[in-house]
Design a protein around this nucleic acid. Structure first.
Lengths: 217, 217
DNA sequence: GTATAAATGTATACCAGGTGCGGAAATATC
DNA sequence: GATATTTCCGCACCTGGTATACATTTATAC
């Protein structure tokens, strides 16, 4: 919060950022190597050459050592909706954004098979408390998206929340399915076509509804 | 697991059930009075006249002391889909079931304003770890519902998961909104009409899709 | 009925995540 | 360079949860 007059962050601020990065890096490295539950925060603190008390000053919980890196994605859908070109439907913007994510192998789509990403995914899935945090993530994303829909597409409050809940839930399924397949050995490049088809199906269901379930049988 | 020949549970089994109930009752009572985080498991154990070790033999985590009572609802949607009368669409069965829940003031719909239920709701919402467990609940419900859809409506795997995710998410919004309104003082009877209208809207969105979001603007 | 095997319960000590506190060290400001 | 403010640390402490080793109760076989 304290900047020198020339606009550059002061020594204090720079040091804080370095300490923060050191803690986070040490944590991720240890977690990737030994697993989240197998490493204690005391070990992380020691590796980062920092006291346990200081560690908790930077990251309020052990889980935050991992999930703080994904914090940006919490509002990603909301930002996409807000930043869409006028005249574009929210769902269209979201679909195109997701497809672009697939093409760029954005880890959030589950379609990135770099060994580091795969290891990170596996590490998270192996730690129940981290999975729980990912669920909370979805809740936050839902709220942010609902607000974006209300404000930019003047959708009624409740409708916006229904839509946001559906969209976030479906995107979660898409990402999880891709990640699962890559974890089982499929290559991202080989999976890409299928992932696109699945995403198209998902967004088609969102747009057209589940009538298939209500009338076909 | 051990029954006497006459079919009645043996003394051992009865005693276990009584102990379990005693622990659970003591826990709920203390939690309702002082709040979840304000009561330690040691206090619960003492109130139930049981050792801490025994408490954890019956309930693997502190949160389970509360959520074990809601465990049935985890597979409720799936059961509704499986038990629907032949020829009925899954979504129709689910909508009717939810509307019946509203009419009967089933707490799961959020439309029960008995003081005890309100206090319990508030207590859960005030405890982050319990909210997290409720999220996990939704994940389980999702999986169960997806499987029910696959098996009884021969829906393709991924489609079933999309549908299940949407349905569970939307029902969650409905319940949460009702609960929020009752927590703010609305009476269940006064809220019922609005709750029905909202539910109809929600299921209409599920059936017909979010085209309103993709074409109107 | 009594001996015995199998559950079940207890006490104690322990580990890990997380917090409160008082003081030391570093940084910013004058 | 003196001083005020942050930041950091070491320590003790609390709580959820587990391991061990032992005592008690219940079921069952004789």
């Amino acid at each position: 919060m304290v900047w020198a007059v020339d606009g550059k962050p002061g020594l204090r601020e720079r040091k804080k950022q370095r300490t923060r990065a050191a803690i986070s890096d040490a944590a991720i490295a240890l977690f990737l190597e030994h697993g989240f539950n197998q490493v204690s925060v005391a070990q992380v603190a020691e590796a980062a050459e920092v006291s346990k008390r200081t560690l908790f000053a930077y990251f309020p919980t052990k889980e935050d050592l991992v999930v703080h890196r994904l914090a940006d994605h919490e509002t990603e859908a909301a930002r996409v909706v807000r930043a869409r070109t006028p005249g574009t439907a929210p769902l269209t913007a979201l679909r195109e954004h997701f497809l672009k994510g697939l093409q760029e192998r954005d880890p959030i789509t589950g379609l990135n098979d770099h060994p580091q990403v795969l290891r990170l995914t596996r590490m998270i899935l192996d730690a129940p408390s981290l999975v729980a945090r990912m669920d909370q993530f979805k809740t936050s994303a839902e709220r942010a998206l609902a607000e974006a829909l209300r404000e930019t597409a003047d959708t009624p409050e409740l409708t916006a929340r229904f839509a946001a809940a559906q969209i976030v839930a479906v995107q979660g399924v898409l990402a999880q399915d891709n990640a699962r397949r890559l974890a089982h050995g499929e290559a991202a490049d080989a999976r890409h076509t299928g992932a696109v088809a699945d995403a198209e199906l998902a967004f088609a269901l969102l747009e057209n509804g589940l009538r298939q379930l209500s009338s076909r049988h």
